[in-house]
Amino acid sequence: MGVVELLGIAASVSLLAGWRLYLCVFATGLAMRTGWIELPHHLAALDVLANPWVLGIAGLGLIAEFFADKIVLLDSVWDAIHTLVRPVGGALLAMAIVDAQDPAWQVISFLLGGGAALLSHGAKAGARVVVNASPEPFSNVAVSTGEDVATAGLLYLALANPVAAVAIAVLFAIAMILLLIMLRRVVKRLLRDPVLAPDPGPPS
């Protein structure tokens, strides 16, 4: 596996961790423990994810996140709490995937992994705030379920096919950047909307 493919896997997993950190940890560890996915030799450092204790904790986090992410407002609170957790988790996953002996590569992978997870986390949290503004609760459940399915599918594809991982990382990063730009425009439009402006009250 070349450097490009290896960095592609690290970037893909880190970006997906910004959406579903516990799912990424649990699914990768379970796939390794059951033999569903035969990871490349370069990813031997991820063996720790197959530890029963790690799987148990990630599984509990996965269940909690699955339900919390589908309840209006609670999902935004959950995202706020994980503003630090997801980037750090994504950074550590990237470090484990790169598994380089050179400390410089470890630092680079940590910074890039954390930045990638923070990017996708920011886009997810911002989009969820906009979705929560909808008066009906079904859009929230639909978006959250879509994130679950997309994360699981893309994670499998990235781990099983290093070449696809590169494409996933590039396209996912571009999509998150575009989503953040779109969210910024939506927020600015909402702030300029006179209907949402605070009532100045009666004149004195």
Score class of each variant (00 low, 15 high):
L62M: 14
I63D: 14
A64E: 11
F66Q: 02
F67K: 09
A68W: 05
I71R: 12
S76T: 13
V77G: 11
V77T: 13
A80M: 12
A80R: 10
A80H: 10
I81E: 04
T83G: 06
V85C: 14
V85M: 10
V88I: 09
A91Q: 03
A91M: 07
L92C: 08
L93V: 13
A100V: 09
A100M: 09
Q101D: 14
D102S: 14
A104Y: 15
W105F: 09
I108F: 13
G113S: 03
G113T: 02
G113E: 00
G114N: 04
G114H: 01
G114C: 04
L118N: 02
H121L: 12
G122T: 05
A125M: 03
G126T: 02
R128K: 14
V130C: 01
V130N: 00
V131Q: 10
V131G: 08
P135Q: 08
P135D: 09
P135V: 05
E136Y: 09
F138Y: 09
N140M: 05
V141T: 15
A142I: 10
S144W: 00
G146S: 11
E147I: 04
E147W: 03
A150Y: 05
T151W: 06
T151Q: 09
A152C: 05
L154M: 06
L157K: 13
A158H: 11
L159A: 14
P162V: 02
V166H: 00
I168H: 03
A169D: 06
A173I: 05
I177E: 12
L178S: 07
L179P: 01
I181H: 14
